[in-house]
């Protein structure tokens, strides 16, 4: 089947019911999306399908009918997305394992809400677990990213 990921079209030969996460990681060798739980309970695997944040561990590849963006497609070290730049500025990460998913979720939030309140942030981000407990910095970084996106 055909799959567009980060602007590149791929032909993948996998079962329809393989979760997108494993197509990305093991077939396309994109390691940004992480495996944490496999049951949509942690958010480490979050990617965008058609611009909307989804848990790729619970999205079957056969059900996808839009382009996929992973954290690698959001931005990279030499050209960071505003969310990534804010994450770096606040040095949010500890182990960092959840942060790709956190940033994809935050990018989705900011695409729909240019000035999120604390409550908006809690609502949007609470499905993304951080076992290291970086939540205070996540909140601060989301606000910084919102501001820099507004300033363009």
């Amino acid at each position: 089947m055909k799959l567009s990921v980060n602007g590149v079209m791929h032909d993948v030969d996998v079962e329809d019911d393989m979760p997108l996460l494993w197509v990305l990681r093991d077939e396309l060798k994109l390691d940004g999306p992480k495996y944490g739980c496999g049951v949509a309970a942690c958010g480490a695997c979050t990617v965008h399908v058609d611009g909307v944040a989804v848990r790729s561990c619970q999205t079957l590849v056969g059900d996808i009918d839009g382009p996929v963006t992973t954290i690698e497609g959001l931005g990279n070290p030499s050209e960071m997305h505003a969310v990534q730049a804010a994450w770096l500025k606040h040095q949010v990460a500890q182990c960092g394992y959840c942060q790709g998913g956190q940033m994809m979720q935050a990018a989705d939030l900011l695409a729909n809400n240019t000035a999120p309140t604390d409550e908006d942030i809690d609502d949007a981000m609470s499905g993304n677990l951080c076992r290291c407990g970086t939540y205070p910095r996540i909140r601060a970084a989301v606000k910084t990213a919102a501001q820099s996106l507004q300033e363009g």
Binding site: G32, T70, I71, E72, L74, G75, N76, P77, M80, Q84, A85, W87, L88, Q91, V92, A93, G96, Q99, G100, M103
Partner: peptide, 13 residues
């Protein structure tokens, strides 16, 4: 700035 921070802020770690 921690040495791992750029990688961990871009999903490349």
């Amino acid at each position: 700035q921690r040495v791992d921070m750029v990688a961990k802020s871009t999903g490349t770690q």
